[in-house]
Design a protein around this nucleic acid. Structure first.
Length: 259
DNA sequence: GTAGGGTTAG
């Protein structure tokens, strides 16, 4: 509270509400303060504060909370603009609670009413939703649209897309997209390598998975517990228990928790 | 100013 002399007027409410959003601590409390502001004090916190609440609720999978804040934002007394930050948070939240169809519906409506010019992050969350529904083929159309809009693709976008192909057992396509990504000069990171390792392990090609594991290490990405879990699983599925155990030992050697 | 991605079972 020592800092309270430095923040004055509306700032103190913003700070307090955002404080309840940090680390998704207690957005419910944040929302009740926001409502007090609007109702009793006639104070309008900033749009950033509304966004923080929506993100915090979505991260905690409380979508009714997120939507409630969104409605307050749209209120004629507030009229804060809808943006990509809010949209991607909500799409991701709907995916987290296993409702990708609601995520897609939400996105389509936002675009239809002209409230949104999507960016790569928002499109990436949409790709997740499509892939959850096995609609990976529709990502190609999306990509065309993005190219027309002049958007650049990145490693997270491709990881999601590749994941979708593995989910449908489309290994060739996954590999092809991986090649495309490399061609574009997009560097793979730990997660994108792990997606490849896991994809091949699950589909019964643990040898190829190990190949990517080595490539990953060569390129300076450190495999983690998730990566090795996929390798162990791949060997176990093929009954290659010696190899599975060797991979398991690598986890121990790296000082990672194996439980 | 903030956001998006990976594993495990039953």
């Amino acid at each position: 509270m020592e800092k309270s002399s430095k923040v004055s007027g509306f700032g103190v409410w913003d700070s307090l509400i955002r404080g309840f959003c940090v680390n998704n601590k207690d957005p419910e409390k944040g929302l009740s303060i926001l409502k007090d502001c609007l109702r009793n004090y006639d104070i309008l916190p900033s749009s950033f504060t509304f966004c923080s609440l929506i993100h915090s609720f979505s991260s905690k999978r409380n979508m009714s909370g997120a939507i409630e804040v969104l409605e307050l934002m749209k209120d004629e007394k507030v009229r804060y603009p809808f943006n990509n930050f809010v949209c991607s948070s909500i799409i991701s939240g709907f995916c987290k609670i296993g409702k990708p169809e609601l995520a897609i519906g939400f996105f389509e409506n936002a675009v239809k009413v002209g409230a949104l010019r999507p960016n790569v992050v928002t499109y990436t969350t949409l790709v997740s939703a499509l892939c959850m529904l096995g609609r990976v083929s529709e990502v190609c159309d999306l990509v065309c649209r993005m190219e027309k809009e002049g958007l650049a693709f990145d490693v997270v976008f491709y990881s999601n897309w590749i994941c979708g192909y593995y989910r449908e057992g489309m290994l060739m396509e996954a590999l092809q997209k991986h090649g495309e990504m490399v061609e574009k000069g997009i560097n793979l990171d730990m997660v994108s390598y792990t997606v490849l390792v896991d994809g091949f392990s699950k589909e019964g090609n643990v040898e190829k998975a190990v190949g990517f594991l080595h490539k990953m290490i060569e390129n300076g990405s450190r495999p983690n517990l998730v990566t090795y879990t996929s390798i162990v699983l791949g060997f176990c599925q093929k009954g290659k228990m010696d190899e599975a155990f060797a991979a398991f030992k690598m986890v121990e050697d790296m000082g990672m928790e194996s439980g």
